[in-house]
Simulated assay, not measured.
Amino acid sequence: MPGPSAPRRTVLKGAALAGTAGLAAAACSTESKLGHAETPTPTAPVDLGAADAVPVGGARLYREERLVVSCPAEGEYKAFSAQCTHAGCLLEKLEGTVGDCPCHGSKFDVTTGKALRGPATVPLPAVPVTAKGGKLIAGPQG
């Protein structure tokens, strides 16, 4: 005899969907209120090693440090966070001066930080970088 309460199967489906929604929300927890991932920058200077490891006219991905550094001209360096501004995934590889995000296919110009293909629309945050004694130092300069 059917009663006013929901059938057990409906209740279980609802509970499963609620759990899935919670996981989806947790997966996107790196997104800010602006709709893009928070990308932390170094709070202390980071020694990236030899400056000549970054080719002139090219770029190098420093995965462990979560940075990408380009060298537009001899002795000139630019650094950006290597975390995608869409969901915070780490750029996986560089094709020339284009960084690829493996999570959703965003692409970035690593010489300017500009998002070239979405879903990311926000550029990669710039990180201060200098060459001192033949080494690259990223982060705050003291």
Rank of each mutant, 00 (worst) to 15 (best):
Phe80Ser: 04
Lys132Gln: 15
Ser81Trp: 05
Thr43His: 00
Lys78Ile: 01
Arg8Gly: 02
Lys135Glu: 12
Arg60Gln: 13
Ala59Pro: 07
Thr130Pro: 00
Ala26Trp: 12
Thr43Met: 01
Pro128Met: 08
Ala6Val: 07
Cys28Gln: 12
Leu17Cys: 09
Ser70Asn: 07
Glu65Lys: 14
Ala26Thr: 05
Gly134Ala: 08
Ala87Tyr: 08
Ala21Trp: 03
Met1Trp: 07
Gly134Phe: 11
Val129Glu: 05
Val129Lys: 05
Pro55Gln: 09
Cys103Thr: 06
Pro125His: 10
Thr10Asn: 07
Phe108Val: 03
Val122Ile: 13
Thr121Met: 13
Gly19Ile: 06
Leu136Phe: 04
Gly133Phe: 14
Cys89Leu: 03
Cys101Gln: 02
Arg66Asn: 09
Pro45Lys: 01
Glu65Gln: 15
Ala37Asn: 02
Asp100Ala: 11
Thr121Gly: 09
Pro119Tyr: 12
Gln141Phe: 00
Lys114Phe: 03
Phe108Asn: 02
Ala26Ser: 09
Leu23Thr: 07
Ser5Ala: 14
Gly57Tyr: 00
Ala16Val: 14
Ser70Gly: 09
Tyr77Leu: 06
Ser70Glu: 09
Ile137Trp: 12
Gly75Gln: 10
Gln83Val: 08
Leu34Phe: 05
Arg60Leu: 11
Leu94Thr: 03
Pro123His: 08
Ser5Phe: 15
Ala24Cys: 13
Glu65Tyr: 11
Arg60Ala: 12
Gly88Ala: 06
Ala24Ser: 06
Val68Cys: 08
Ser29Phe: 01
Thr41Met: 06
